[in-house]
C-alpha cells in the first residue's frame, strides 16, 4: 500500500501521554471531518456545519482545537487511554507507538471480507521519561508544549498540500469513505491502533540475532 504516512516522536512524562496524543489526533481529525451529509433526493444533498472548541491541557502548557462532537471525542479518548494504560502500567515498557489510520473500503465478492485500503497514516511514537521534582515538571510542561506547537504546524502544512483524499462518493457508497455513525459530524473512515515495545525486548532480540549469526558462521 502506498498510503502516505507521517511519524512524530515525543518524549513525555506519564501524565502527559493522553493529552499529547489527543492534541495531535484531534487536530488531524478536525481537518479530516466534514459536516454531516444530508440527502434530499439522489444526487442532491446538503452538508452540515462543523463546530469546534478549544481544549486546555492540564499537564502541558498547550491549547488545541477539536471538533465539538461528544461522540468523536469519546471514541478518541477510549482508544488513547487503552494505549496510555499499556504504556504506563506497572510493567509498561516505557515506549510505544499509536497510529491514526484513514482508510477506504472496497466491496469484494462474497465470501471475502470488505477490503480496507489505508490512504493516510499518522504515527506518534512516545517515550516515557521520569522527572524528579516539580522544577523539572514545570520545564517539561513548557517543552512538550513547544514540541506540540511544531507538530500542529506540521499537520497544517500537510493538510494544505492537498494530496490525495478519496473521491466524494455517491449516496450508496458513502460509508465506504466516511464514518456515518456519528450524529453530528462525518469524518473520513479512520481507526486507531497501538503497539508498545520496551527497550528490553529490543536488546533480547538483537542478542538472539547475534547468537544465531555467530552459530551459523562457525
Amino acid at each position: 500500500m502506498n498510503a502516505r504516512s507521517q511519524t512524530f516522536e515525543l518524549e513525555v512524562e506519564g501524565h502527559q501521554v493522553d493529552e499529547a496524543v489527543a492534541s495531535i489526533f484531534h487536530t488531524v481529525l478536525f481537518h479530516r471531518s466534514l459536516g454531516k451529509f444530508c440527502y434530499k433526493q439522489e444526487g442532491s444533498y446538503s452538508v452540515g456545519t462543523v463546530g469546534y472548541e478549544d481544549v486546555d491541557c492540564d499537564f502541558i502548557d498547550f491549547t488545541y482545537v477539536c471538533c465539538s462532537s461528544y461522540y468523536l471525542d469519546q471514541t478518541l479518548k477510549r482508544e488513547i487511554s487503552g494505549f496510555s494504560e499499556a504504556l504506563r502500567g506497572n510493567d509498561g515498557p516505557g515506549s510505544g507507538q499509536i497510529s491514526l489510520e484513514f482508510f477506504q473500503k472496497k466491496k469484494t465478492r462474497w465470501p471475502f471480507h470488505t477490503e480496507c485500503i489505508p490512504w493516510e497514516v499518522w504515527n506518534l511514537r512516545l517515550e516515557l521519561i521520569k522527572l524528579n521534582n516539580e522544577h523539572e515538571r514545570q520545564l517539561c510542561r513548557e517543552k512538550v508544549g513547544e514540541l506540540l506547537t511544531e507538530k500542529i504546524l506540521y499537520v497544517a502544512d500537510v493538510m494544505n498540500r492537498h494530496d490525495y483524499v478519496p473521491k466524494m462518493p455517491n449516496q450508496s457508497e458513502l460509508d465506504l469513505i466516511f464514518d456515518t455513525t456519528y450524529p453530528d459530524i462525518q469524518p473520513y473512515l479512520f481507526k486507531l491502533s497501538f503497539t508498545t515495545s520496551g527497550p528490553t525486548t529490543v536488546s533480547v532480540g538483537s542478542t538472539m540475532k547475534k547468537l544465531i549469526k555467530e552459530t551459523l558462521s562457525l
Binding site: C38, G48, T49, E53, D54, D184
Partner: peptide, 13 residues
C-alpha cells in the same frame, strides 16, 4: 476566552 461553536448536521447552507 475559550471558543466553542456547535456542529449543526442540518445546516441551512
Amino acid at each position: 476566552e475559550k471558543i466553542s461553536t456547535r456542529c449543526n448536521p442540518e445546516s441551512s447552507g
